[in-house]
């Protein structure tokens, strides 16, 4: 443990105070992200993936707020920075890519204007220099005739091309970390793979770490070094992609892997996890997954499991902790 991780999230809690009650969207999650690493974050809608991303970049929508824990970037805390100081982190040290490229770009400004203004906000360069950088960035993300397209407006690009522009924008000040929040969900299936490939390659070239938020296990398996599985604002399991995919420990992860459609084998029905994720105002006591878990026992309903090391992974599950896991995997295979 000689190297300080690039990003370190320690026991992070995010709350949304509402008139009725305070909802806890993120309940004590911890993870590290090493330099150059690609971390995938998966989970169902509402598991808290995007909120985690917004909390890290300091753009939680009010009334949401960080109510506990800390976020360290390169060893320094960034969760308690002032608005102005945090603004200089955004774009410069952490780049962000949003889900829908069709709405991420301001329709009234040319893409050249949007890229150069971002470059000039963060780097001490002249406008001509910024334009030059913009052109080379656009070429890098694979936009043909980049110099001419600089003066085009977003509506003159296709969805895939716009997401390329968004990637160029997120990377234009050479950030150390890129948070990509479902970068391909809104795109055609045919361009999804291209964009993911591009994102991975370009971040590697620029030496940026990536936090890839998605609900597509396929994308995670192909792209990421490590993966965190989130459920109800907590991390159920986190570890190297190979281990989590091949040898999942948490029943929820087991269920997720079972829900990936395959072309091999004679399975004619997809496996499902019964039930749905609890609402934020009705998270059950103990392990939040317990109402849907096939292997639930008394302790799951009473106490909340904390993540423990299992091999290369960390898993929050009483089954694993009490060594009952064999039964679980056996049942799953049967």
């Amino acid at each position: 443990m000689a190297e300080t991780p690039l990003l370190s999230v320690r026991n992070l809690k995010v709350e949304f105070p509402t008139r009725r009650a305070t909802l806890t969207a993120i309940d004590g999650i911890s993870f590290d992200l090493k330099k150059g690493e690609v971390l995938g974050v998966v989970g169902e809608s509402g598991a808290g993936k995007s909120i985690t991303g917004s909390a890290i970049i300091g753009l939680l929508e009010p009334p949401g707020r960080i109510s506990g824990g800390e976020i360290l970037l390169g060893g320094e805390r960034i969760d308690n920075l002032s608005q102005t100081a945090m603004r200089k982190v955004r774009g410069k040290r952490i780049g962000m890519i949003f889900q829908d490229p069709l709405t991420s770009l301001n329709p009234l400004f040319t893409i050249g204007e949007q890229i150069t203004e971002t470059i000039m906000t963060h780097l001490p360069v002249s406008e001509a220099e910024a334009r030059k950088r913009a052109v080379s960035l656009l070429e890098e993300v694979g936009i043909p005739a980049a110099a001419e397209r600089l003066d085009a407006y977003p509506h003159q690009f296709s969805g895939g091309m716009r997401q390329r522009v968004v990637i160029a924008l997120a990377l234009c000040a050479e950030p150390e970390l890129v948070i990509a929040d479902e970068p391909t969900t809104a795109l055609d299936v045919s361009v999804q793979a291209q964009i993911i490939g591009l994102l991975k390659r370009i971040c590697k070239d620029h030496g940026a770490s990536v936090m890839l938020i998605t609900h597509d296990m396929g994308v995670i398996a192909e792209t990421c070094d490590r993966v965190a599985v989130m459920y109800s604002g907590r991390i159920a399991e986190i570890g190297p992609v190979r281990d989590v995919v091949k040898n999942p420990h948490h029943p929820y992860t087991v269920g997720l892997m079972g829900a990936i459609p395959t072309l091999v084998g004679e399975l004619d029905r997809l496996t499902q996890i019964p039930g749905s994720m609890p609402r934020l105002d009705a998270i059950p006591k103990g392990c939040p997954f317990n109402p849907r878990c096939a292997h639930v026992f008394d302790r799951c309903r009473a106490e909340r499991p904390d993540p423990i090391d299992v091999g290369t992974s960390r898993v929050a599950c009483w089954l694993v902790e009490e060594g009952r896991n064999d039964r679980a995997s056996k049942v799953e295979q049967a």
Binding site: R90, G91, F98, T103, T121, A170
Partner: peptide, 16 residues
């Protein structure tokens, strides 16, 4: 809108 969120995520000053 998303583009305003994205503009903030790019670290542009509030005035801009």
């Amino acid at each position: 809108t998303d583009y305003i969120k994205f503009a903030r995520a790019r670290g542009l000053p509030n005035r801009t």
